[in-house]
Amino acid sequence: MDIFLQQIVNGLTIGSLYALVALGYTMVYGVMKLINFAHGDLVALSAFAGLTIYTSIFADGGTSIIAVITVFMFTAAIIAVVGVLLERLAYRPLRTAPRLSAVVSALGAGLVIQNSIMLIWGPNMKIFPSDLFPSTIYDINGVVITFTQLMILIFSSVLMIALYLFINKTKIGTAIRAVAIDQDAAKLMGINVNKIIMIIFIIGSALGAVAGLFIGIYYRGITFDMGWMYGLNAFVAAIIGGIGNIPGAMFGGLMLGLFNALISGYISSAWAETFTFMLLIVVLIFRPTGILGEKVAEKV
């Protein structure tokens, strides 16, 4: 039982990170019908950029709440700008081109970011300092939860709830949903579609940046090609939840995290990836649009 509860805690932690990354995939897909394959590499870039910001600014001053918050804000802002540039340079020129061209461009952009990370920071693993968060460990009846895990769970929940409310309750959020349904009709409402797409890339990249930093703090070791693994898992999570669907990405991320943790705990972590893709295949066979995909078919 302890193993089970422990793996639930671990699964929710990694699941929250998957969910944050999956939101970036699903929002871009929802609005542009494009799989942003470079998104995972933005997550990796965030971990490296965050590490550099932290070590260069706060190296000798020790750690403080302010230092950590500054690192998060700076990094999220930088990655958001990179995300917007990515859309401008790699996707906007192909907006009216066949979808395959944009997908190839996305793969290419991902490689460019990945190789840039390697050229700037080198091919070897970098290690995050262990003192960003206190090393407090809470022991609740044998189930161990670290301060970092607690922060990941709290912050991702807050961000996801905030995003959900923003999308569903605000004027801009409604406009984002309108653009996702029909871009021409949205233009006829006076909605600037380019601006909405920019907002999508800002939000998606910033959420990915937060996930990238948490990955660095939680796992400590970061490599230039880690974006591929986290990106792929998050992409699978987005598809399982129903790509294009925001609650679906949150649900898919948490579900995949739990599933991974339970497989790792009871079978072997070597099998986790295999089971991830088996789960994907099973979901796609029975629910081709994902678990929460396609609420209502549009009437013609």
């Binding site: 409604t174 949903r177 009709a185």
Partner: peptide
């Protein structure tokens, strides 16, 4: 071209977007 997965009210509010 109404926004199918938005409510009627939300559709009308989108009309007043500007």
């Amino acid at each position: 071209k109404v926004f199918g997965t938005l409510s009627v009210e939300e559709n009308l509010h989108m009309g007043a977007y500007t």
